[in-house]
Design a protein around this nucleic acid. Structure first.
Lengths: 109, 109
DNA sequence: ATGTTTGTTCGTATTTTTACGATTAATTAA
DNA sequence: TTAATTAATCGTAAAAATACGAACAAACAT
């Protein structure tokens, strides 16, 4: 399934954007960015949502490649996947730095 | 409704990310960025989806503040909302440029 | 063996998203 | 007035996202 109707870069960027398209997931990324140790419990404490829901959001971020987890019994440690983070950073930078059409004001109001 | 559980910047960034979280909407933004004239019909031609669906995606981008439309009878002209575009650009830049925890390698594998 | 801690998965409900064809509205052309 | 063009909206269906409590699994401690 998932016949690609759009170019791969577009699909990839949209995938990253989608993964970041929920405040809980943005909050998780911000939290992970500033932590050395980043256990599930700490993340859960930061967020106003149930454990199961935190787990789901972590899965979404993991599926998107933005984070990775490691079991450190009895805890689970999460952190940013720096390689994919850098790639996402680059895709967003390219996207937002593409030059807009010559006219320097909005072409419509 | 919509009691805010997260800080406003986080909510705003997530909102922009969500709006960009579909390949059709990324494609629309890319298309608008390089066009002077950007009519609904042209956008529709670019995309492999039905008119009604294009309209929905345009509404989503408009609701997020990323684009704006103007009627130019009998057509409708769309373009990027440069002010909000710049703001989104800034929020994403801040987000991706936040420094990660000291360790230069991933803290887990 | 039992219990404790930690976090995932299951089951489920609700809401939102995505998509389409058909209808409608607004304007211009004949 | 009627027809044509353009695009939004309506109605609907199917899929995905969001959220929660309960049950479960894995490892360690008692």
């Amino acid at each position: 399934m998932a016949e690609k109707k759009y170019c791969i870069k577009t699909e990839t960027l949209a995938g990253f954007a989608k993964a970041l398209g929920h405040p809980a997931r943005i909050a998780i990324m911000k939290f992970l960015a500033k932590q050395d140790a980043c256990y599930f419990g700490d993340i859960h404490e930061e967020l106003p949502i149930a454990k199961a829901t935190v787990s789901q959001h972590l899965s979404a971020l993991k599926d998107a490649g933005l984070i990775q987890g490691e079991i450190e019994t009895p805890k689970v440690k999460y952190c940013i996947n720096r390689e994919n983070w850098a790639y996402a950073q680059q895709l967003f930078a390219e996207f937002f730095n593409m030059e807009l059409c010559e006219k320097k004001e909005d072409c419509c109001k």
